[in-house]
Amino acid sequence: MILQQIVNGISIGAVYALIAVGYSLVYSVLNFSNFAHGDVLMLGAYIGFFSLMLLKVPFPLAIAMAMVGAGIIAMIIEKIAYRPLRLRRAPLLYFMISAMGMSIFLQNFTIVTIGPNFRTYPDIFPVKPFAVGNLSIGRLDLVILIATVIVLLLLTWLVYKTRIGIAIQAAAYNMRVASLMGINPDLIATLVFLLAGASAGIGGVLFGMKYTVYPWMGVLTIKAFVAAVVGGLGSLPGAVVGAFVLGITETFAAAYISSAFRDLFSYLLMTIIIVARPAGLMGTVAQEKA
């Protein structure tokens, strides 16, 4: 029973991880929480859904289209909602407000154009779970886990091993000094939003398959934001660790206490972590950022 709950927790944690890395990546470079991130995920979920239903593309291609589409949408959001503020050196609060405005706009735009109804992904993988001993592992959960691992490995390689990734890390540490190295801050911002958007895109497809697709589903990603905070906002490994810790905490709370208390425990976990370790589980103590 305990093992089964851990399996369930890892499955939900994997989706949180995909979304949390996007929150963390943007925060690490630009120092604000992009609250329109959930709506990029929602749009990714729709792109995947319509690619499958209308264009009848194979599943992997649908995921690729959702990633590319959501990545481009995130880049456009950065350009119109955040870049003008950044170039004017606006206070960080303005970025948050702009993000919330963008979020409300995207949700309502989707309601008006696509409609407010819930949509269900077709069953691409057999619903019947694998049985390993007493454990039952959903096939979709397994796909989610594998996809998450692949995306996270790719992202890790990109950020820690490539030239441009090292530039992202430099910019995250100190954007001003990074620009003295010839790094263009606009380029880094574009790139970071592209990466965050693409991982939200695949996250949206997986989320949509596990649950349903609807215009305000982005609200659910607030849990992923909690995961990013628990892990240490701005730290990629932290976001992943935080996501799995949160996923497992939630499933245990739901299984052993009451599913009504599930969210209570998520936020309780966040509060305890913030009070005990303000930088999060793996976050570095605020260097020169406030």
Binding site: A170, A172, Y173
Partner: peptide, 11 residues
């Protein structure tokens, strides 16, 4: 070469 030894401490 900026003042105050501004290295990228995370690299």
């Amino acid at each position: 070469v900026p003042e105050g030894r501004q290295v990228f401490a995370n690299l």
